[in-house]
């Protein structure tokens, strides 16, 4: 196992000590650049874009809502990949990164749900509707809670890593299933994902587009959120690694070596 890790450059960072050293070097860059992007993107978005002709100033919540929603889903995806890497290659850093990402995912899901409610109230006249998209996010939130709760409940770190990884795998399948089930169960109010569509960017789609004036600050906000996510996960993974190191040192002490 160690040999193959050395042979391949990227797996070298699967060593906790190397990972810690490297992440400490790059973390300041991520903190600063995400801060810059968020300040620029949010300021631009909130104060220097026109109000929407239909939605008024409430549209500006898009600068929080869309990036948070994107990350809420992709955090789970990242956890899935990290769990798979742990199950296949047994790299501790990978599964600790998954553990570190889960609370970030929860917060993103909550931000997406809350901003969605605040946005939806004036638009649809209700704080909450059992729309497929909203419902899926609520279910995703429950999956995050289960994953975190399982980590907290198990004492042996390697057993916890294995069990949560399998749960993440099985959970992913069921999350996708739930998404289709919910779609079938209720066709909703929410517009389709319109940010990343080509027509939306070029302005060819006049129906439900996010036009250029909104798009560029939104893009900067998304980049800012992603950088913030990376910074938070690196930082929290570092914390998890130190906690494991502490545990290992204690064990050595107890063994009287």
């Amino acid at each position: 196992m160690t040999i193959s890790a050395k042979a391949n450059a990227i797996w070298a960072y699967a060593n906790p000590k190397k990972f810690l050293a490297a992440s400490e070097r790059v973390l300041p860059f991520f903190w600063i650049s995400s801060g810059l992007c968020l300040v620029v993107g949010l300021t631009w978005g909130f104060f220097f874009t026109p109000d929407d002709y239909r939605q008024g100033s409430t549209v500006k919540i898009i600068y929080l809502h869309v990036p948070a929603a994107l990350l809420a889903i992709n955090t789970w995806f990242m956890m899935l990949v990290a769990s798979l890497i742990w199950l296949i290659r047994r790299h501790h850093v990978s599964v600790l990164a998954a553990r570190a990402a889960a609370p970030v995912g929860v917060v993103m899901t909550v931000i997406a749900l809350v901003t969605g409610a605040i946005w939806g109230q004036p638009m649809w006249g209700t704080w909450w509707a059992w729309d497929p998209r909203l419902t899926s996010f609520l279910i995703l939130f429950l999956f995050y809670l289960g994953y975190i709760a399982l980590w907290e409940a198990i004492e042996n770190p390697d057993a916890a890593a294995d069990l949560t990884s399998v749960l993440c795998l099985v959970g992913s399948v069921f999350a996708v299933l739930s998404r289709y089930a919910v779609n079938f169960w209720n066709q909703g109010l929410h517009q389709g994902a319109s940010v990343m569509r080509i027509e939306a960017v070029t302005g060819a789609d006049t129906q439900e587009k996010v036009s250029n004036v909104f798009f560029f600050p939104l893009l900067i906000c998304i980049v800012g959120f992603v950088l913030l996510f990376v910074a938070l996960v690196l930082y929290r993974t570092g914390t998890e690694i130190r906690a494991r190191r502490f545990r290992a040192l204690l064990a050595r002490e107890r063994a009287g070596a």
Partner: peptide, 9 residues
């Protein structure tokens, strides 16, 4: 907590 979300579909 773990099983109920899996029961959704």
């Amino acid at each position: 907590l773990l099983v109920l979300p899996l029961y959704v579909p």
